[in-house]
Structure formats: structure tokens, C-alpha cells
């Protein structure tokens, strides 16, 4: 990004609490939360070539861990996202170990099962209404905010937390570990020959991805102070998956538009009275994205189409081979 873009981004981040209504600030906070979660999907899909259709469930595990770290262990709020990340990463590793023994679709399957089971489990643990925490997450006096402006303080906390984690994730992904993830995805045998422990790298990668989702779940507790099973539904996981496919998982910064759409689309649909069509929209997005781009990048294909360039080869070489077919 150029310097001008960076300045513009920082200006937008600072202007939101200054001029936005409390509801708008809340949505902006949620957008930052989901950026972290989508970064996790970037690791899983873009770097490891795996798919998770249950990423919302890992956020739920993070939120649950956060709530119980505060309620049962008495940890201070500000460190709870770390507890969330650790819990979700542990769960991710737990799911990854058996499923990666059979590659490909199995992780997706187990995450589907998790995404369906988790809301039930959360309701079982904490009751249908969940638990309320974070009610005393009020701005300290040095900020100059009064106690009714808590959403601005929470926004600030989430932005700082998200920025720190995304920066850290970017460093890790550009470093040795990030490159070994790509090596394991593309050439597992060559990677092993170069001394990379393939299985361990994959499990660590999944744990890292799930840890990011868990951290996001912990951050979400700052924004809305209750943790309940009905927030981390299977639909949420499916929508996140759809956006990962739609926006392409190959670049970390794509988690920004993905998070924007995830939070703002329902608001937009409600405004036009089309709220029940949300899953239809995501369904169509998936169908169009996979049709146009195959395993390639949907956004990339769209960009080229809009510029009038020819179709990329990655889409066309996926069609059926030119073999003359005879009658059975």
C-alpha cells in the first residue's frame, strides 16, 4: 500500500468514532473483529489449501473461553482474547489431528459437524440466554470519555487488538512458518525432503487459523457483552466460508472487504426489505464465484473481466478434456 492509502485508512479508522452514531460504531467494531476471523480463514484456505465450513464455531469457542476466563478464573478483561485464542487453537489442533490423516474434505466435514454442534453445546453449558460479561467494560477516566460513550472505548480496544494480531499474523505468515505452510500445501514430498515436518506444520497451521478465529471471538465479547449459542450459528460459518471463496483467500488484506460485507450486507438487505434473502445472496455468490473462477481467485477473474482482458487460463483448463467420447 502506498503512503496515501495508509493515511486514508488511518483517517477512516479515527473518523468512525468521531462522527458515527453508536450503532454505526458498533458495526465498525464488529467489522474489525471479523477481519481477524477472516485472517484465520486466509491461513486455512489460502495458505494450507484446506477449507473450514465451521469457522464461526471456533469464534464461539473463543467467546465461551473468554466468558469463563472472566467468570470462573477472574482474569482481567483485557487478557481474555489471549485465553480465547489458546482455547480455539487447542480445539483446532484436536480436530486437525484425526482429520488430516485423511486429507482434503475431511477437515471441512468435521468443521461442519462442529459448527452444528457448538451452538447446542453452548446453550447446554450456559443456558439459552448465555452469560453476560463485560458490563463493566467502561472507559477509564484518562480517555476523557464519559461512561455513556463505552462503545467508543470498546471500538478502540478492538481496533488496537485487531491491529496487533493482524500485524503479528502478517509477520508470521511472511516468515519461515508462513513459507513452510505454502511448501506443505504445494509440494508436501519436497517439503518433507527439505526437513519440514509436514504433519506438524499442518496441525500448527490449523491451530494458528483457529487461534485467530478464537481471538476474534474474544474481541467480539468486548463489543457485545454477552456470549450465547445463538450468535455462532451454522449460517454464520457458511456465510464466512462463502465470503472467503468470493473474495479470494490468497491475500491477507482481502479479509477487510470480506468483514465489511459480512456486517453491512444484512443492514443493507433490511433497508430494502430483503432480509430473508441473505442466504440466497451468499448461495448465489458461491455459485457464481466457483463457476467463473474454479479454484482460482474470483476477485482476480472479476478484475480482469472488468478490464476487458481475456479469461485467465486457470478457469479454462478445468473444463472437460477434449477426448472423443463414444457410445457406451
Amino acid at each position: 500500500m502506498t503512503r496515501a492509502w495508509q493515511a486514508a485508512a488511518i483517517a477512516v479508522v479515527l473518523l468512525v468514532p468521531a462522527f458515527g452514531s453508536p450503532v454505526f460504531v458498533l458495526h465498525a467494531t464488529e467489522i474489525f473483529v471479523f477481519m481477524v476471523a477472516f485472517a484465520g480463514l486466509h491461513v486455512l484456505t489460502g495458505r494450507l489449501g484446506l477449507i473450514s465450513i465451521g469457522h464461526g464455531a471456533f469464534m464461539g469457542i473463543g467467546a465461551l473461553a473468554s466468558a469463563h476466563a472472566v467468570l470462573d478464573l477472574g482474569l482481567p478483561y483485557l487478557v481474555t482474547p489471549l485465553a480465547s485464542a489458546i482455547a480455539a487453537a487447542a480445539f483446532g489442533a484436536l480436530i486437525a489431528v484425526p482429520s488430516l490423516r485423511l486429507p482434503g474434505a475431511y477437515l471441512a466435514l468435521l468443521t461442519v459437524a462442529m459448527a452444528m454442534a457448538l451452538p447446542i453445546l453452548m446453550i447446554r453449558i450456559d443456558g439459552p440466554l448465555g452469560v453476560r460479561i463485560g458490563e463493566d467494560l467502561l472507559p477509564p477516566t484518562w480517555t476523557g470519555l464519559d461512561e455513556y460513550q463505552e462503545e467508543i472505548w470498546q471500538y478502540g480496544l478492538v481496533v488496537v487488538g485487531a491491529a496487533m494480531v493482524l500485524g503479528l499474523a502478517s509477520l508470521i505468515l511472511n516468515g519461515r512458518f508462513g513459507r513452510s505452510l505454502i511448501a506443505v500445501r504445494d509440494e508436501p514430498i519436497a517439503a518433507a525432503a527439505f526437513g519440514i515436518n509436514v504433519a506438524r506444520t499442518q496441525v500448527l497451521g490449523v491451530a494458528f487459523a483457529c487461534g485467530l478465529a478464537g481471538f476474534a471471538g474474544g474481541l467480539l465479547v468486548f463489543a457485545t457483552p454477552y456470549v450465547a449459542g445463538d450468535r455462532y450459528t451454522f449460517e454464520l460459518s457458511l456465510f464466512m466460508y462463502a465470503l472467503t471463496i468470493g473474495f479470494g483467500a490468497q491475500r491477507l488484506w482481502m479479509s477487510i472487504p470480506a468483514a465489511l460485507v459480512l456486517i453491512m450486507l444484512p443492514q443493507l438487505l433490511i433497508r430494502f426489505g430483503w432480509a430473508p434473502y441473505q442466504s440466497v445472496v451468499y448461495g448465489l455468490l458461491l455459485l457464481v464465484a466457483t463457476r467463473l473462477a474454479g479454484s482460482g481467485e474470483f476477485v482476480e477473474v472479476l478484475r480482469r473481466r472488468l478490464k476487458g482482458a481475456s479469461r485467465p487460463t486457470s478457469g479454462s483448463d478445468l473444463t472437460e478434456p477434449d477426448i472423443v467420447l463414444l457410445e457406451v
Binding site: G49, I245, V280, T290
Partner: peptide
Amino acid sequence: PLPAIGAIVGIYLLFRG
């Protein structure tokens, strides 16, 4: 198989909606 899984989840969401 990954695009196919994506398309199938798309069908799932479409039918559900």
C-alpha cells in the same frame, strides 16, 4: 474438488433460503 464443495455449499444456502 474444492470449487465443487464451494458450489455445493452455495446450493445448500440457496435451497435453505
